[in-house]
Write a protein that binds this DNA or RNA. Structure first.
Lengths: 262, 262
DNA sequence: TATTAAAATCGGTCATACCATTTATCCGGC
DNA sequence: GCCGGATAAATGGTATGACCGATTTTAATA
C-alpha cells in the first residue's frame, strides 16, 4: 500500500479555468498520467484528500465519481478508493456505448457489423502473432465447444473464451478492449437464447475454421473465416428474433439489444 | 421543452440492491432506454427531481455526474441538465481510453495499429456504401489538401475532415465513434507537429488513393490504400519523434501521446 | 418597440452530521 | 502462546441546509 507522505497532491489553484470539480478531475488524471497514482493504489481518505487539494469533500467526491464512472477509480465503502487494478485484459466500460446506442437508435445490425469488423481485425492480427500457448488455448476452446453441443450454456462459455483468446493473441489491447465493449452489449441477451443443436455444431465448425487459419498463419483466411462465422451468427440471430417475436408481441420494433449464436 | 407533468419519475425503491446513487443511475438509464428521456430533453431541476425520486440532492447529483462523465448528460450552471443532443455523428468520450492507456502503458504503436485497423474497416465499408455526396466531399477535402501544402495547419483540417467523411460513408456509427475515440487521442499532439512539405504532398497523394479506391467501389483497394497511408504516417511520426527527442531530452521514454502526419 | 435592469431559476460549492460497511484492534478462552 | 469473536476505528455513502455564481426570464424603462 503506497504511502503519500510527500506532497504529491497540490492545492487547487483558485485562478482556474473550469469548475472546481473539473480541476479536481484534471489533477487526479495528471497524477495517473505522471504515474504518481498506479493501478491498485489506494487514494487517501476523502476527508484528508479534500484538505490536501483545498476543496470540500462533496466537490472531491464529484471528481472521484466522474473518474469512477469511466472505470478509472473504484470506491468501496469502508475500504477506500482505489485506482482500478490492471489484472487481466484492460476493459472499457460498455455502458457509455450502450447508452449512446439508445440515444441514437443504433440497430442491432449496426452492432453486429461493428463487432464483425473488430473481430476480423483481431483475427487477422492473431494469425500473424499468436503464440503457441494462445493457439493451444484456442484449440482447447474449440474442442470444448464440440464437447458441449448439448449444453448451450457451457457452449457459450467456450465460445466467449475462444473469441477472447483470439483477441488477446492479436497483441493489441486497444482493439481487444473495443471489441469486448461491443461484444458485451451483444452478449447480454445472448445468454437467454436457446439454440438448436444444429446451430451449435455449425458454430463450432466455424470456430474451428478460424482457429485453423490462425494456426496456418494466414491472416486473410482468418479474417474470411471470422467474417463468415459472424455473418452466419447474425443470420441465425435474426431468424430467432423472428420466432421469438410471437412470445413478446409488445415492443416489436426490434430496436436495440441483441444476442444469438456467434 | 418537454414537460414532465406525468409521473415518469418513480420513487426509488428502498429495498434496492446496490447503493442509492446506483439506483438513481439505473433509473435514469432506463428512462433513456425506454425513450422517456430523449436527446436534447431537459431534466427537471435537481431539487425537484430529487424529491420525485425520493433521494437527497447530493445523491441525485452523484448519479447525474456519473452519467455526465460518460457523455450522456450535460449540466450547465443556471440553465439545467440536458440529455446530450445527437447533432452530427455520435461521439464517445475518449478520456476513458486515454486514462486506460496511461494505466496500462499502451504504446503509441499500439494506438496507431488500432486506428489503422478501424480506418481500414470503415474505408472498406465506405467503398461499398458511400453516396455521391460523400464521395464529392472526400474529393473536395483531397483537393483542399493539395491546395494547402504550404499551410500545415489548414492541411490538417482537410486531413481530419477527409477521414471523418470516410467514416461517415461507412454507414456504421459505432465504428465511426470508436475510430474517432482513438483518433482523438492521437490527434492532440499531432497539431503541434510541424511537417515538411514533402510529407504533406505524399500524404495528400495517399489520401487521393484512398478516395479513388472508394470511388471505384473497390473495398480491398480502399483498405490497402488506407493501410499504406497510415503505415507511412506512422513511420513519418516515428522519425519526427526521433528528431524531437533532442528538444525534450527529459522523459525520453516516449510513452503515450502521439501525432504526426497521417 | 428595443434596451436594460431586476428577479427568479438552477447548477456548483461548502459545511456538518450521521449511517453502513469494512478493516483493524483487543481481549478472553482454549 | 495462539486463535477467534467482539469491539472500536476508519472510510465511503447519504442527508440536510445554506450560500454563491451563472443563466434565463421577466419587468421596467428609454
Amino acid at each position: 500500500m503506497t504511502d503519500f507522505n510527500s506532497d504529491i497532491f497540490k492545492t487547487i489553484d483558485p485562478e482556474r479555468r473550469g469548475t472546481t470539480s473539473e480541476e479536481v478531475i484534471s489533477q487526479l488524471r495528471e497524477m495517473i498520467h505522471r504515474g504518481d497514482l498506479r493501478p491498485g493504489d489506494r487514494l487517501p481518505p476523502e476527508r484528508d484528500l479534500a484538505k490536501l487539494l483545498g476543496v470540500s469533500r462533496p466537490t472531491l467526491r464529484a471528481g472521484i465519481r466522474s473518474l469512477a464512472a469511466v472505470g478509472v477509480l473504484h470506491s468501496r465503502q469502508g475500504a477506500g478508493t482505489f485506482v482500478v487494478k490492471a489484472d487481466g485484459p484492460p476493459s472499457l466500460d460498455s455502458s457509455p456505448l450502450r447508452l449512446m446506442a439508445s440515444l441514437h437508435g443504433f440497430t442491432s445490425a449496426e452492432m453486429f457489423e461493428a463487432r464483425q469488423s473488430l473481430e476480423m481485425a483481431v483475427a487477422g492480427l492473431a494469425a500473424e502473432r499468436a503464440t503457441g500457448d494462445q493457439m493451444a488455448s484456442m484449440s482447447e476452446e474449440v474442442a470444448g465447444m464440440f464437447a458441449s453441443l448439448d449444453d448451450p450454456e457451457q457452449f457459450l462459455v467456450h465460445d466467449v473464451r475462444f473469441h477472447q483468446t483470439v483477441a488477446a493473441a492479436s497483441g493489441n489491447r486497444i482493439l481487444t478492449s473495443l471489441m469486448n465493449m461491443v461484444a458485451t452489449i451483444l452478449f447480454d441477451t445472448r445468454i437467454k437464447t436457446v439454440k438448436r443443436a444444429t446451430d451449435l455444431k455449425e458454430s463450432a465448425e466455424m470456430h474451428r475454421h478460424v482457429y485453423r487459419a490462425i494456426r496456418e498463419r494466414n491472416p486473410d483466411a482468418a479474417r474470411a473465416a471470422m467474417r463468415e462465422h459472424l455473418e452466419r451468427a447474425q443470420r441465425a440471430w435474426e431468424l430467432e428474433k423472428q420466432d421469438a417475436a410471437d412470445d413478446t408481441p409488445a415492443d416489436g420494433s426490434g430496436g436495440n439489444g441483441a444476442g444469438g449464436a456467434h
